[in-house]
Simulated assay, not measured.
Amino acid sequence: MKRYEVYRNIRKGAVIFGLPISLFALMMLSVIGSLLVIIFSFGFRVILAVLVVNVVLYLSLLKITDNPQLFHFKKVFPTTISNKQTTNLDYGQD
C-alpha cells in the first residue's frame, strides 16, 4: 500500500515546474508564441534561436523565483502613516 506524506507547505503557494502560477503562465505564453514562430518559419536557425530563448527565459524565471530581491526596488508601505493634513498655511510662530 502506498504511503503519502502530509503537505505542510500550503502557504508557500502553488508551484508548477518550480515557477509560481503567474510566471508559469508567462512561460507558457512564450512557448505558444515560439510554436507559432516555428510553424510559420521553416529555418533551422530560427528553430534553434527559439529554443535557446525559451531555455534562457525559463532559467531567468527560476533565478527570479529563487531570489525575489533582484527586482525589489522600493518599499511598498511608508514608514509612518498619519491622518494629519499637510498644508502650506503659516499660523505664525509656535
Rank of each mutant, 00 (worst) to 15 (best):
G33C: 09
L23Q: 09
Q69Y: 15
V50G: 02
S22G: 01
Q85G: 10
L29F: 06
L35D: 05
R3W: 04
V31N: 05
K12V: 02
V31S: 08
K63R: 11
Y91K: 12
T65N: 14
V37D: 06
G13A: 13
V56P: 00
N9P: 00
I47R: 10
F71S: 04
V46Q: 11
R8C: 02
F24S: 09
G33N: 11
Y4R: 10
L36Y: 10
N67S: 12
S34R: 01
K84Y: 00
P20Q: 00
K12M: 12
K74N: 06
L61C: 13
N9M: 04
L35Y: 11
I16S: 03
I16A: 04
V55G: 02
K12I: 01
I10L: 15
N83H: 07
N83R: 07
F42H: 07
N54D: 13
M1N: 08
V31G: 00
Y91S: 03
S60P: 04
N9L: 04
H72R: 10
G33V: 06
G33K: 01
E5F: 13
L29K: 02
G18K: 03
Y7L: 15
L29C: 12
M28K: 03
L70Y: 14
I32M: 07
Y7S: 01
S82N: 09
G92R: 07
L48D: 01
L57R: 04
S41N: 12
T80F: 09
